[in-house]
């Protein structure tokens, strides 16, 4: 399901981020620390699955020829997925999941705000819808970081450890490449490099409130946008795509 159309490729990137992160969040259902949180995590997961569907539907319309949202989710292999590595890392413990979520939400809010101004009206509409979700997601995940960071010794330790592990995957959010440059020039894509300052401000302010230490790692690990993933994505897809692989071409 390869496409050379830049807007399609861009929509797929954004759809992949949302699907893979939503999938990781959905793994929490029936496993959260208490019922209220089970339901709340479910809502966030549903927002991301919904977002993925919007991006995929748009991409499917552009590709045409009987391609649907499910074609993208269920019939592409690892190398064709172009999500951020941050989104695919296994869910880990609750601190890891919420730290990942916070680092992503702090990016996602300014990102969706900017996307809402895209010259591509469909992407702009998805962005406008997603902004409202992201605002709530960030409020929630920021709140959790403060609670866990400034909670017990154990919660602080778990949170700090999660941050340290996640940090090297955050640079990828702000990377640009030829596709982005091309679409930024057309006013279609968001110039993520410009969001970095805003992201750093949100993160620094939150970590301070949470009594957590900003990680010092300077290296970045990336590759997701080029289809170079961690080993974890293959296992995620094996589970996600099981039905469509075992019974190809059927309606469910």
């Amino acid at each position: 399901m390869k496409s050379d159309d830049p807007v399609t490729r861009y929509a797929l990137r954004l759809g992949d981020d949302a699907l893979i992160l939503g999938h990781r969040l959905s793994e929490w259902m029936s496993r959260a620390p208490f019922l209220e949180e089970d339901i709340a995590l479910g809502n966030v997961a549903l927002d991301f699955i919904g977002r993925a569907r919007l991006f995929y539907q748009y991409a499917a319309e552009r590709v045409g020829g009987g391609v649907t949202e499910d074609t993208f989710a269920y019939t592409r292999d690892v190398r064709e997925f172009t999500n951020l590595l941050l989104c695919e890392l296994p869910r880990g413990d609750f601190a890891f999941t919420l730290c990942r979520q916070f680092l992503y939400d702090a990016f996602s809010l300014p990102f969706t705000e900017a996307l809402a101004g895209s010259a591509d009206s469909r992407l702009a509409a998805i962005g406008a819808k997603a902004v409202k979700e992201s605002r709530y997601h960030l409020r929630r995940s920021r709140d959790w970081i403060v609670r866990l960071g400034d909670g017990t010794e154990e919660s602080h330790r778990r949170c700090q450890q999660a941050l340290d592990e996640l940090w090297i995957y955050t640079g990828e959010m702000f990377e640009t490449d030829q596709l982005i440059d091309e679409l930024v020039a057309l006013g279609v894509a968001v110039d993520t490099a410009e969001l970095r300052r805003c992201w750093i401000e949100t993160v620094s302010e939150t970590l301070r409130a949470a009594t957590l230490t900003p990680p010092t790692a300077t290296a970045d690990v990336s590759g997701g946008r080029r289809g170079i993933h961690t080993d974890d994505l293959g296992f995620l897809l094996a589970e996600l795509q099981f039905m469509q692989r075992a019974y190809p071409g059927l309606q469910w």
């Binding site: 208490f34 019922l35 209220e36 339901i39 709340a40 479910g42 809502n43 709140d143």
Partner: peptide, 20 residues
């Protein structure tokens, strides 16, 4: 009703639990 740690969190959970 629901369980929460403080009023702010209660408000957020109320949104998730009772206004889906």
């Amino acid at each position: 009703s629901l369980h929460a740690d403080d009023a702010i969190q209660a408000l957020e959970y109320a949104r998730d639990v009772y206004t889906r």
